[in-house]
Amino acid sequence: MDPRSEVLLRQAELFQGRLLLAGPPADDLLGQLPAAVGWSWHAGEQQLLDRRFGGRCSFGVAPVPGEFDAAVLFLPKSRELTDYLLQTLAARLNGRPLYLVGEKRAGVERAARQLAGFGRARKLDSARHCQLWQVMVEQAPAAPELDALAHHFTLELADGPLQVISLPGVFSHGRLDVGSALLLEHLDDIPSGRVLDFGCGAGILGATLKRRYPQSNLLLLDVDAFAIESSRRTLAANGLEAEVIAGDGIDAAPRHLAAIVSNPPFHQGVHTSYRASEALIERAAEHLVSGGELRLVANAFLRYPPLVEQHLGPCHTLAERDGFRIYRAVRP
């Protein structure tokens, strides 16, 4: 059981009515709270919860409609996303309680200060290195509009300006990160056919690839619902069409790909994990056709070349700058 869930269950008498769990971990909490439903923006966790508690956890950038007696927000890592989620939940809870639970090192005390805008907040419990806070929503705010929270910016690229729409919680929200900037300069000679942008974020790489290789069947994949929505908006803003897929890791991608291009993710919550990137390298060959290519950007200190050569083939460094490297490998 996730320690945040354990803290909730120490106060189980508070959570017996119709309850919305926002961002719940993939544990047995829904089983312990039979009147609760979940709202997840993490495709992997939603899939696990749906497998165990079919139909009780939705996926997307907005909660399921309906009335709730209370809601619990499991603190996400992004401050901007936290603000959107708290506003969204509070807008549905006039005169009812809103709870916030999170790890101390994730900044739950800081986030709890945001509850003051809805009423008088109080800490209910502190255990398992986590805290549980409550606020009675005295005056519900207006439901926030995602459009108003999106960052719109323009990238001046070699083949013309690219419009980008980034939503709260998306990697490198509102700006172009250094690794992607380097990769954008090294997208020449991508094999034609079915091309995957793995970990698409706001859709910058995917939109650039589709514009540069319009005949390719482009797919974008990410685990995060806000990234999926950002990518769809970025594609639309540039008059481009591509398939956007929600899925947790490379196993969610289709087979018979001509190329996989990625600035792979490695952060999960307050913990650092390279598992998604390593799994991509380890199983890329299963998804690529013969002659298909993996091209990715990574921190130079990560020992990816031996892993690439073990599972795919010779690893070539195309470029290096600002602590990042572009790697290329081709399936035999």
Rank of each mutant, 00 (worst) to 15 (best):
I165N: 15
L240V: 05
R255H: 11
A143L: 08
P25V: 11
R328K: 10
A143G: 04
G323V: 11
N299M: 09
R120I: 06
P141G: 07
L9G: 03
S230L: 03
D27H: 05
A252R: 03
L220G: 11
A276G: 10
G44V: 11
G55Y: 14
P161H: 12
R92M: 09
Y213V: 13
G206K: 03
A90E: 00
P214I: 08
E278L: 15
L302C: 07
H152F: 13
V223G: 14
D159S: 12
D69I: 12
R295Q: 07
Y99F: 15
H129N: 12
A91W: 02
L73I: 09
A285Q: 10
L307I: 04
Y84K: 00
R120E: 15
F171S: 09
A207G: 02
V289K: 11
L176V: 13
G38T: 08
G23Q: 05
A12N: 04
H42A: 13
F53Q: 14
D197N: 06
L98Y: 05
A36G: 06
E6F: 07
R232A: 11
P191H: 05
A284V: 10
G107E: 01
D189G: 10
I190P: 03
D147V: 07
G206L: 10
A143V: 07
G95K: 11
H152P: 02
L155T: 07
Q310G: 05
A26N: 05
L81I: 05
G17N: 07
K77H: 10
G160Q: 05
E13Q: 14
G169M: 09
E320F: 04
P76A: 01
V289R: 13
L296N: 00
P191R: 04
W39F: 14
G44H: 14
Y99E: 08
I245K: 06
S192H: 12
L196G: 01
H173Y: 14
V297Y: 00
I250K: 06
D50A: 15
A35Y: 12
F15A: 00
A246V: 06
A237N: 03
R52W: 12
L21H: 02
P76W: 01
E282C: 08
T154E: 14
L312H: 03
A106L: 00
R113G: 13
H151G: 07
A148C: 13
A252Y: 08
L302R: 04
G174F: 14
D159G: 06
Y274G: 10
S172T: 10
E67P: 01
R212D: 07
A43K: 07
H287L: 07
A225P: 09
G119M: 03
E13S: 12
H173Q: 15
V289P: 09
I250V: 11
V178I: 14
D224A: 13
R128D: 11
E320V: 08
K104W: 02
E67D: 14
G179Y: 05
S231F: 08
N299Y: 04
L48I: 11
P254I: 00
A329M: 05
A70E: 08
R325I: 07
E286W: 05
R295W: 04
D83V: 01
P254L: 02
A71M: 01
R96K: 15
A225M: 04
V72L: 01
D83M: 00
L257F: 06
L318D: 08
A106Q: 00
G201D: 04
L149K: 08
A202H: 09
T317M: 11
P191E: 06
L132H: 03
K104A: 04
L124M: 13
E103P: 03
F324K: 00
V270T: 12
